[in-house]
Simulated assay, not measured.
Amino acid sequence: MNIVHATDHDAGGFRAGFVAILGLPNVGKSTLLNAFLGERLSIVTPRAQTTQRRLLGIHSDSAHQAIFIDTPGLLKPRYTLHRSMREEALSALSDADVAVVVVDAGFGPSVDWAGEFAASIHVPKLLCLNKVDRIDVGRLEEIERALACGGWESVHGTCATQGQGVGELLEAVLSRLPESPPLYPVDELSDAPVRDFAAEMIRETCLEELSEEVPYAVAIRIEQFRERGGDRPVYIEAVVYVERESQKGIVVGGGGSMIRRIGTRSRGKIERFLGRRVFLELRVKVLANWRKKTHHLRVLGFRVPEEEN
């Protein structure tokens, strides 16, 4: 992890540290990160397993710096990519100074999982009962009683999509960070390069536009990212990888209709993110069974599970 130590703060009185955001798939972890930052940094779709790699989002104020780590959902792995995603999440916990465990308050298995997972966390841990707008007060009290023995520092009901309860949870996180000078420049929002965000916006659009299993077989690789002078648009060339020829046909669409739609919508997202014009060129290629092959995962920039190195 590339840490840049800022030099314009003393450690005295300032608090800074890493905060892992953990939970099952589709409980609202990425939405919560975006709400903490007040920026749409992490992609969000209704599909489970949207987040594939951990992403750092940095909140800084006059007395605190929280480096939030958005993680893939902790699911039972079925193939190598899933094992990679699980390792990403668990490695975030091993790096963390504070953990925020996110539960979908209306989804029983998510509540049960949190009760079981609590014992494996050995840093200050806060429980976030998200999506409380979907349950009544009586059910919320039942959940709080069921999870009361988890050793939580505090319990917070939130609706991350509306910002409900997010400010109180953020204050609780900041107060539990260790004393430290800032670990990153205080004007940064993330340590990830801009090209990574462009790739994620393309993948988000694929998740939104494609149906069935196809979007889960998609990986994005940025081949070129060139910022050009004057009024010339940023030039981005990206490859959309799929696992089978039949999937390639679906992504391309009749007469190229689908890939044009994906390109148009992705370009709009990237332009809003960068605040300038973009020329986006997409190509579709087959990389057979990339989710199950460690060398393909490595080429695509994923963490390779330790047992498979």
Score class of each variant (00 low, 15 high):
residue 7 T to Q: 14
residue 8 D to R: 14
residue 8 D to Y: 03
residue 9 H to A: 07
residue 9 H to D: 02
residue 12 G to F: 11
residue 14 F to Y: 14
residue 15 R to W: 02
residue 15 R to C: 09
residue 17 G to S: 04
residue 19 V to I: 09
residue 24 L to M: 11
residue 28 G to V: 01
residue 29 K to N: 03
residue 30 S to G: 08
residue 33 L to C: 12
residue 34 N to Y: 12
residue 39 E to L: 11
residue 39 E to M: 11
residue 41 L to D: 01
residue 48 A to D: 07
residue 48 A to S: 14
residue 49 Q to L: 04
residue 51 T to I: 12
residue 55 L to C: 06
residue 58 I to P: 06
residue 60 S to C: 11
residue 64 H to E: 03
residue 65 Q to C: 10
residue 73 G to R: 10
residue 77 P to Y: 03
residue 77 P to L: 02
residue 80 T to P: 04
residue 82 H to S: 10
residue 84 S to W: 00
residue 85 M to N: 08
residue 86 R to M: 06
residue 86 R to K: 11
residue 86 R to I: 09
residue 87 E to Y: 07
residue 93 L to E: 04
residue 97 D to P: 10
residue 100 V to I: 12
residue 106 G to C: 01
residue 108 G to S: 13
residue 110 S to C: 08
residue 111 V to Q: 01
residue 112 D to K: 02
residue 112 D to W: 00
residue 112 D to L: 00
residue 114 A to F: 01
residue 117 F to M: 10
residue 127 L to G: 00
residue 129 L to W: 02
residue 131 K to R: 08
residue 132 V to F: 00
residue 132 V to E: 00
residue 133 D to A: 03
residue 133 D to Q: 03
residue 134 R to I: 02
residue 134 R to D: 01
residue 138 G to S: 10
residue 142 E to N: 07
residue 143 I to Q: 00
residue 143 I to H: 00
residue 145 R to L: 02
residue 148 A to G: 04
residue 149 C to R: 05
residue 151 G to M: 07
residue 158 T to W: 01
residue 158 T to F: 00
residue 158 T to A: 02
residue 160 A to T: 07
residue 160 A to E: 04
residue 162 Q to P: 01
residue 172 A to F: 04
residue 175 S to Y: 04
residue 176 R to H: 15
residue 187 D to F: 06
residue 191 D to T: 14
residue 191 D to C: 13
residue 192 A to Y: 07
residue 192 A to C: 05
residue 197 F to H: 09
residue 197 F to G: 03
residue 198 A to D: 08
residue 199 A to T: 11
residue 201 M to K: 10
residue 203 R to H: 12
residue 206 C to G: 10
residue 210 L to N: 09
residue 212 E to C: 10
residue 214 V to Y: 01
residue 217 A to S: 15
residue 217 A to H: 12
residue 224 Q to D: 15
residue 225 F to D: 04
residue 225 F to M: 09
residue 227 E to F: 04
residue 229 G to D: 13
residue 234 V to Q: 07
residue 236 I to N: 09
residue 239 V to E: 02
residue 241 Y to W: 13
residue 245 E to Y: 05
residue 246 S to L: 11
residue 248 K to C: 08
residue 249 G to N: 11
residue 250 I to Q: 14
residue 252 V to G: 06
residue 254 G to F: 12
residue 254 G to K: 15
residue 255 G to P: 07
residue 257 S to H: 14
residue 257 S to R: 15
residue 257 S to A: 15
residue 260 R to W: 09
residue 263 G to F: 07
residue 264 T to H: 05
residue 265 R to N: 02
residue 267 R to E: 03
residue 267 R to W: 04
residue 268 G to T: 07
residue 268 G to S: 08
residue 271 E to P: 06
residue 274 L to V: 08
residue 274 L to G: 05
residue 276 R to I: 12
residue 277 R to A: 15
residue 278 V to Q: 08
residue 281 E to S: 15
residue 282 L to H: 04
residue 285 K to M: 05
residue 286 V to R: 06
residue 286 V to L: 06
residue 289 N to E: 10
residue 289 N to I: 01
residue 290 W to K: 13
residue 291 R to W: 01
residue 295 H to E: 15
residue 296 H to S: 15
residue 296 H to T: 13
residue 299 V to C: 11
residue 300 L to D: 13
residue 301 G to Y: 08
residue 301 G to R: 12
residue 303 R to G: 09
